[in-house]
């Protein structure tokens, strides 16, 4: 009865959170797996923020890795140069990314699909050059290091304290995903569903597409920047390597594999890709060949992404257990 009240989907989400919360105990604090899990949590947030933009608001953004990097550099540089404590530097990273997001959004959100992709990717490319060119401040290709870590008591948020760090990362993960979830189920999210289903009708009802897109673009840039700031505090470094094509491809593949516009598909995609990449590590040179081939194969067989598996499997289960019969009775 309780389950029925909060809805099946929410119950599943809660169950997922519970599993994530219990994992470190089940793994007996295995540092190696925990560090991979933390990476998956962070990529999961970035992929979800990106998906919010691309899957729900239908803004063809290629700039989220740039927002992520902006957030990371802001947090790292303010912490190092001005001695701002991590707890203030992390939100500051998010805010800076959001400001960039809004500026870029004002510039390009009236454009159509590919054109938005190009302008946002422009930010990505320009950022790379600015970081290398401004090496006196940004550290150039080497990046930013040497700032105070996020520390609580004797525990430091870093790969050396995986058990502690996992719960910090999980807390941030849950908070940010909750924000994304609320946006998807808010009037803004509904407006996007309306726009997707019937654009002329939605517009005639007074849905201001530009305004909503701008809001969502800003929020998702904020989340991307925030998680970027978390990333730099966890690893203790950010460098322009983050902007290279392989990582860009990986994050795109994460939320696309999970299922575009199917919350929480991006998170599932992030976990799958992160772990498969790790499992393939012994293949050395052949690692990314195998990863790419696996993604192609999976997509050709499950075109709607991993999140569409239940929908596609359900009819089979019903047939197998005779549920179809029950359904017919109900109707």
């Amino acid at each position: 009865m309780v389950v029925n009240k909060i809805g099946r989907k929410n119950a599943l989400l809660l169950g997922g959170v519970l599993v994530l919360g219990l994992l470190p105990i089940a793994l007996q604090g295995n540092a190696r797996i925990l560090n991979v899990l933390i990476a998956a949590l962070m990529w999961g947030v970035l992929a979800s923020a990106w998906d919010l933009c691309m899957g729900y608001a239908r803004v063809f953004s290629f700039g989220h890795l740039a927002f992520f990097t902006i957030g990371a550099y802001t947090a790292g540089l303010t912490a190092r140069q001005l001695g701002i404590p991590p707890l203030a530097a992390i939100p500051l990273g998010g805010v800076t990314a959001a400001i960039f997001g809004l500026l870029i959004g004002l510039l390009c959100l009236r454009l159509r699909g590919v054109y938005i992709a190009m302008v946002t990717f422009g930010l990505h490319m320009v950022l790379q050059t600015v970081i290398i060119w401004g090496r006196d401040i940004t550290g150039g290709k080497t990046g930013v290091t040497g700032f105070a870590p996020l520390q609580i008591g004797q525990y430091i948020f870093s790969p050396s304290y995986p058990f502690f760090s996992y719960y910090i990362a999980l807390g941030i993960f849950i908070l940010l995903l909750f924000i994304i979830y609320r946006i998807i189920n808010s009037p803004i999210g509904l407006a996007f569903v309306a726009l997707r289903d019937s654009e002329p009708y939605a517009k005639s009802l007074g849905v201001n597409e530009y305004k909503y897109k701008l809001i969502v673009f800003g929020i998702s840039a904020f989340i991307a920047g925030l998680i970027g700031a978390v990333y730099i505090h966890f690893y203790g470094i950010i460098s322009p390597v983050t902007l290279d094509i392989p990582i860009f491809l990986m994050v795109l593949i994460m939320f696309m594999l999970g299922g575009l516009g199917r919350f929480p598909g991006a998170v599932i995609g992030a976990f799958v890709i992160t772990f498969v990449t790790e499992a393939l590590r012994p293949l050395l040179l052949w690692r990314f060949v195998a990863l790419g081939a696996i993604v192609v194969a999976v997509t050709v067989f499950i075109p709607g992404g991993l999140m569409s598996i239940p929908e596609r499997v359900r009819p089979f289960i019903r047939r197998a257990f005779g549920r179809r019969h029950v359904e017919e009775e109900v109707s």
Binding site: V36, A39, Y235, I247
Partner: peptide, 8 residues
């Protein structure tokens, strides 16, 4: 040499 690769 990205941080994630190094840690892994």
């Amino acid at each position: 040499c990205s941080a994630g690769e190094l840690i892994a």
